[in-house]
Write a protein that binds this DNA or RNA. Structure first.
Ligand SMILES: [Mn+2]
Ligand SMILES: [Mn+2]
Ligand SMILES: [Zn+2]
Ligand SMILES: [Zn+2]
Lengths: 138, 138
DNA sequence: CCAATAATGCAATACCATTGCATTGGTTAA
DNA sequence: TTAACCAATGCAATGGTATTGCATTATTGG
């Protein structure tokens, strides 16, 4: 188990320190995206700043992606695609549930192509759907 | 001129105070969405908190809409459609320019329908396209 | 004009993001 | 084995923004 976690870190060229292993294990347990505060609460030991820098390292190495879901609080989730340093391919839809306040990756739902006015060239797409998730629809 | 501004406020059932007129005039001058800090800098007199509450009032009454462009700093722009209290119809694409850092409404570009997994029901869509705007493409 | 109500400005609070710096820990070379 | 090096960590401090309470001021309606 822990071996797989370490391998996953190694595959992204991230040194497998104790803290990083703990954070990645926590991320692997989630089925929705979580915030830095969530991680801080989920780990007894950890310092806020260390988590901050751990997440930044993970993001820069293509292990996780950051989701701005409109709450103003960044959420983080594991990359499902083979992302690399500053080359994220998570062009999928994200869903924010107004009821349970959870943010979900919908990796099977890609963002459709968008037509833009002349002169505007796209580099990155970010689509947030807000509504009610499956759990909260009874 | 000022009369039109006051009428626009009145049509949204917003009392036309001096500060609100100033803020609305400033918003009318923009061709991109602006932040609370931008407004604070644009008006010599104004108190930060008053602007904060003015914008909240404007938003609640369907005069402006708030844009979360991924920077973490909310931007505001006038509603182009007939929005009402908590009934915003600004389902259009927003564009953030990585070069000039400006955020544009693209009211003529609606967000296409998105298919969702079973059980997820959408209420609101928010699509941010990041890239280079027309001005910055030379 | 007066009373009631709404809006404003100031102070204070609470988070959150970010950086500097000293310390710790693990890895490598002498 | 030890020394030296580099990466990672933890603490302190800073800066910025959002938000509320409350006293004061402005506006409105009678
Ligand atoms: Mn995702
Ligand atoms: Mn808009
Ligand atoms: Zn939910
Ligand atoms: Zn631009």
């Amino acid at each position: 188990m822990k071996l797989q976690v370490e391998q996953r870190l190694a595959s992204k060229k991230i040194n497998p320190t104790a803290m990083r292993i703990l954070v990645l294990e926590l991320l692997l347990q989630q089925n929705s995206a979580i915030s830095m505060s969530d991680i801080e609460k989920g780990l007894e030991t950890a310092d806020r700043i260390t988590i901050y820098r751990t997440l930044k390292t993970f993001e820069q190495n293509g292990l996780i992606h950051c989701i701005e879901d409109g709450t103003g609080i960044p959420k983080y989730a594991l990359c499902v695609e083979d992302c690399t340093t500053h080359e994220h391919h998570d062009m999928h839809v994200h869903f924010y549930c107004n009821s349970c306040k959870e943010t979900f990756c919908l990796p099977d739902h890609r963002i459709p192509d968008i037509s833009l006015p002349a002169g505007f060239s796209p580099a990155e797409l970010n689509l947030i759907v807000k509504g009610t998730c499956e759990k909260c629809t009874q």
